[in-house]
Simulated scan of single mutants.
Amino acid sequence: MVSDAESAPVFAKPVTLREVAVSAGVSVATASKALNGQGRMTAETRERIRETARLLGFRPNSLAQSLLRRRSFTVGLLTNDTYGRFSLPLMAGVSDALVDNGVSVFLCNVEDDTRLGQLHVEAMLDKRVDGIIATGKRIDRHLPVDLANLRVPVVYAFTQPDAGAVGFVSDDADGARLAVEHFCRLGRRRIAHVSGPASFAVVNTRAGAYRAVLQENNLPAIEPLLGAWSEAWGHEAVAKLFGGRGERPDAVFCGNDQIARGVIDALRERGIRVPDEVGVIGFDNWEIVAEATRPPLTSVDMNLASLGREAGLALLSLVDGQPAAPGIRKLPCRLVVRQSCGSPPE
């Protein structure tokens, strides 16, 4: 019979800095300086020590380094985006910006609960995070927590920043222009716009860009149809656009990918071919929706990973004491072309 002590796993002791120094044939002080990028020594000596540490599997004591540099090498990411639709790709970009600097990111979902948000902020400060990135599910609303006057820098991404703070958002007008101009290049001449509620700032911004492009191309502007951010609304909008006897649209620019999917399904039910008779473009480039749509959906991508990366780099700069001008930076979108919008006329 095997005892608990005999069956317990045996873990190897961590390699010490002294072992690295002995193996590399240098003093402990020299080994420490080489691994921290400090001190005077030849490039060959520094590289030999680092290679020795790598082969031995040496890992620096992060707690000791934190105390030495007065940094925790952690950043908090606060969001109320419960589904992670926007916060997860943005977090991927933040992590990409910080990983090379040895900084880790941990995510806290504050939902729409002020008390929960405050608890998360206090926990982050207790853990001595180097800074906080705030993000949300829409760009025109503040998170339900006060992030002003904290003892660490705060950067905002895809949410409304506090006065005097640094913020990053996607350029929604630019994204809408990409979609409508693409339809114009494809020879579409009667372009409709179906979007979400008017209470969202992005809805009005995109509708304004839609009207501007049509005016620039001397095309008739159909009054945008505004409703919910849902497939059901896209389905209902098709009944409004194609149910009468008037001239039908030959293209539909949608405010998000769910609406676009509803539009395509409703057109198919009416026997209207996409993209042969009507082209459709969505917004968000939510790949799980866009690629599964039939035909696959052309959509505007807000470049959330790039947005997160820029926010991460900005926060690093602030943590390092570099000043940053307050205000909102708008990052360009890109159009991901699939089959739903069709090809240019011959």
Rank of each mutant, 00 (worst) to 15 (best):
F200H: 10
R59D: 04
G327A: 04
A228I: 04
R248G: 13
H182W: 08
G117Q: 10
Y83R: 10
G57Q: 04
I132G: 06
S340Y: 10
L125H: 05
A24K: 06
P249Q: 13
V202P: 00
G208A: 08
S343K: 10
R48N: 12
A34R: 11
A324M: 11
T135R: 07
G187H: 06
V2L: 13
L318A: 13
V105Q: 02
P323Y: 09
L226E: 02
V75I: 10
G131D: 01
A324R: 14
A237L: 06
S7K: 12
T298N: 13
W286M: 10
P197K: 08
L143A: 08
P224F: 02
E111F: 11
G327I: 02
M302S: 09
L150N: 05
H235N: 04
R50M: 12
R18I: 12
R50N: 04
L214V: 09
A29I: 12
G37L: 14
N36I: 11
R294T: 06
S23N: 11
F168D: 13
S199C: 03
V180Q: 11
G234A: 00
G262K: 12
C184K: 04
L56E: 07
K33G: 00
S195G: 14
R46P: 00
T82V: 15
S317I: 01
E291V: 14
I139G: 13
F86G: 08
G246M: 15
R309P: 03
N36K: 11
Q160L: 15
A53S: 14
A221M: 10
K137N: 15
A325Q: 13
A92W: 01
A12Q: 14
N109V: 03
H142K: 11
P197F: 06
G282W: 07
M91W: 00
T159W: 11
L56G: 12
L88H: 02
G255Q: 00
P295M: 03
R141F: 07
N303F: 03
V26Y: 01
A209W: 02
L307G: 05
A232R: 06
Y83C: 04
V2M: 14
T205Q: 12
V289D: 04
E269S: 14
R50F: 01
R71H: 07
A165I: 00
Q65V: 12
E287Q: 14
L214S: 10
Y83H: 12
L78I: 04
G234I: 01
E223V: 00
A237C: 07
V2E: 11
A192K: 01
L225S: 05
E44K: 09
K127D: 09
L178W: 02
A239V: 00
N285F: 11
D113L: 09
V20Q: 09
R294W: 07
